[in-house]
Amino acid sequence: MVTDQDIIRIMQAGLPLCPEPYASIAASLELDEAELLRRIDAMLRQGTIRRIGLVPNHYRIGYRYNAMTVWALDEDRIDAVGELFGAQASVSHCYKRPSYPPGWPYNLFAMVHGRGLDEINDKIAALKKLIGDDCRQSDVLFSEKILKKTGIRLKNRSSEHA
C-alpha cells in the first residue's frame, strides 16, 4: 500500500528532468502513472499539497535582500491591513502573529524582497503610505545571513524512528 506520505517523500526530492517524470516516479513506487496523477491531484484538492511548481532561488536570481517588516496595529485593524498588504506584489508573505508588548509590540508581519536596498526601502515606504495612521509603530529587520533554508519536508523514514 503506497501512502500519500510515500508519494510526497519521493516527490519532494524533486521531479526528475526527463520527458515522463511522473511515470518514472510511479514506477519506483510500483504504482500506475494514472493512479499517481490522481493521488497527487487529490492531495492538491485537499490542500495537503499547496501547489506543485518550481522553487526559484530568489537570491541567485538577484533578490539579495529580504526585509521582515513588522507592524503594531490595533486588533480591529489587523484583518483590513493584512488583506491590503497580502494583495501587494511587493509582499511575499503576510501573517498575523501574537505580540508581547512592550518588548515586542508587533502583530503583523510582511516579507518584502528586493534586488537592492533602494528598491526594498521604496517598497516599504509604499506600504507605510498605504496604511497611514493605522500603524502605531513599525520596524524593519533586514536579513544579514541565511543560515539554513530547507523548506518544509517530511522526514525520511530512516530518521522518523530515531
Binding site: 510526497i8 516527490m11 519532494q12 524533486g14 521531479l15 528532468l17 506543485i52 532561488n57 519536508r153
Partner: peptide
C-alpha cells in the same frame, strides 16, 4: 546554475 532549488510539491504546513 542554481536558479532553481527544485521542482516539486510545496506542502501546506
Amino acid at each position: 546554475d542554481g536558479y532553481i532549488s527544485r521542482i516539486g510539491p510545496l506542502l501546506n504546513h
